[in-house]
Simulated scan of single mutants.
Amino acid sequence: MKTLLKVVVVCALGAIALFWLVANFSAVESRFQCDGQVAVQGKRQPMTLYMKLEEYRPWVRLWSDSDASLNLEAPSQWVDYYEHLEAIGDQLQIYETYPQKALRGNFSRLSKTLALDLKVGGLFDGECKTMN
Rank of each mutant, 00 (worst) to 15 (best):
K2Y: 07
T3R: 11
L5F: 10
K6D: 06
A12Y: 10
A12S: 08
L13V: 13
L13M: 13
A15I: 11
A15T: 05
A15F: 15
I16S: 04
L18M: 08
L18H: 01
F19W: 11
W20R: 04
V22C: 12
A23W: 07
A23I: 02
N24H: 12
N24D: 07
F25G: 09
F25C: 11
V28M: 01
V28P: 00
R31V: 02
R31Q: 12
C34T: 13
G36W: 15
A39S: 15
A39H: 04
A39W: 05
G42A: 09
R44K: 15
P46L: 06
M47F: 07
L49S: 06
M51G: 01
K52M: 05
L53N: 06
L53E: 05
E54V: 04
W59S: 07
W59A: 12
V60Q: 03
V60F: 02
R61M: 03
R61E: 07
W63P: 00
S64R: 14
S64F: 03
S66K: 04
D67F: 00
S69C: 05
N71I: 04
L72E: 02
E73F: 02
S76H: 07
Q77C: 01
W78G: 13
W78I: 08
W78S: 15
D80W: 11
D80I: 01
Y82T: 04
E83K: 03
L85P: 01
L85G: 12
E86Q: 08
A87Q: 14
G89I: 03
D90P: 05
L92K: 03
I94G: 01
Y95M: 11
E96Q: 15
T97E: 12
T97L: 15
T97A: 08
Y98N: 05
P99Y: 14
K101G: 08
F107W: 08
R109H: 04
K112D: 05
K112Y: 06
T113V: 02
L114C: 03
L114Y: 15
D117A: 13
L118G: 02
K119R: 06
G121A: 11
G121M: 02
G122E: 08
G122W: 10
G126T: 03
E127S: 07
E127K: 12
K129Q: 10
K129I: 01
M131E: 13
